[in-house]
Amino acid sequence: MGSQGSPGGERRAASQSLRPLTIKQIFSAEQAHTDAELYIDGVEVTQVTVVAQVISIQTQTTNSVYYLDDGTGRMEARLWADSSTEDDGIDNRGVKEQTNVRVTGALKSFSGKRYINATNIRPSTDPHELYFHMMEVMYVTLVHQRGPPPRAGETISKVSASASTSTNGNYSAYTTPTTTTAASDKYPDVGPLARRIVEFILTQPTRPEGTHVAAIARHVKVDAAAIRRVPFILFRLF
């Protein structure tokens, strides 16, 4: 991935930011070879944070190895000894087995094995922290894949233009493209009726409840039953 131009610069800046992830996402990260950088959604990932349960802890002279499970997979987090701590030099910060923790650190790969080189491991005592983390993971992932949602007072055209230079070069999934040609380009293999439906939906303002089937039927001049027989459109759009 190059660092020239705005998109490359954005990817490089994103790689230095702390990204919330699940363990499954970490294992699915792309890597050209065993010593190459790890990429998720086309963005280099270095600093990560996960919330998981500690299955076991192995304390050694120079480090402690925490075996983590977040429900999507299992992996190790390694916390190295700090000469500023007491006793053996490793500060476990009250972390115990079979409890939840938040782990922050650098994502590493050694001999094909991925692990977190932890800079901080602390108990996660709030039961809502796990749910917050999972929602944050979903939000950040969608922003990388589909572009950011519109900000307060921002017009659809501005958001669409911004999304066109996002990490995947597509329009934001949270906005309506300003032209209907997007349907022709993005869905070349759909039938005539499906294409007309898609083109109409793309011209409608974004509403939480979506576009009513009656409005679609009036526009494409077919009955509502015919609209309901094209359910795959929903999956193609999203």
Rank of each mutant, 00 (worst) to 15 (best):
M1K: 09
M1F: 02
S3M: 03
S3N: 07
Q4Y: 03
S6K: 03
G8A: 13
G8L: 02
E10L: 13
A13G: 05
S17L: 12
R19Q: 09
I26V: 09
I26L: 11
I26W: 00
S28A: 11
E30G: 03
A32C: 02
A32G: 03
D35A: 06
D35P: 00
A36R: 05
L38N: 08
L38K: 08
I40S: 04
D41I: 00
D41R: 11
G42I: 01
V43K: 00
E44D: 04
E44S: 03
V45F: 00
T46V: 05
V48Y: 04
V48F: 07
V51G: 07
A52N: 03
A52G: 05
A52F: 04
T59L: 07
L68V: 07
D69H: 12
D70F: 02
R74L: 03
M75Y: 04
M75F: 10
A81T: 10
S83H: 09
S83N: 08
S84P: 01
T85M: 11
D87H: 15
D88L: 10
D88Q: 11
I90P: 12
G94K: 06
V95E: 01
K96I: 06
K96L: 14
N100F: 15
V101M: 10
T104Y: 06
T104M: 08
T104W: 10
L107C: 01
L107G: 07
G112A: 02
K113S: 11
R114D: 05
R114C: 03
R114E: 01
Y115E: 07
I116G: 11
A118M: 04
T119Q: 12
N120S: 15
I121S: 07
I121L: 05
P123Y: 03
P123G: 04
S124F: 00
S124C: 10
H128V: 03
F132C: 06
F132I: 09
V143F: 04
V143I: 15
R146H: 15
G147W: 01
P148N: 13
A152N: 10
E154Q: 13
S157W: 04
S157K: 13
V159Y: 01
V159A: 15
V159H: 07
A161Q: 11
N168A: 09
N170V: 14
S172I: 02
T175H: 13
P177I: 09
T178I: 12
T181F: 05
T181H: 07
A182L: 14
D185Y: 08
D185S: 13
K186H: 07
Y187G: 02
G191S: 10
A194K: 07
R196G: 13
V198K: 00
F200E: 03
L202G: 11
Q204A: 08
T206M: 15
R207A: 15
P208C: 13
T211I: 14
T211V: 15
A214S: 14
A215G: 06
A217D: 05
V220M: 00
V222M: 03
D223G: 11
D223I: 02
A224C: 05
A225S: 08
R229W: 04
F235A: 15
R236G: 12
L237K: 08
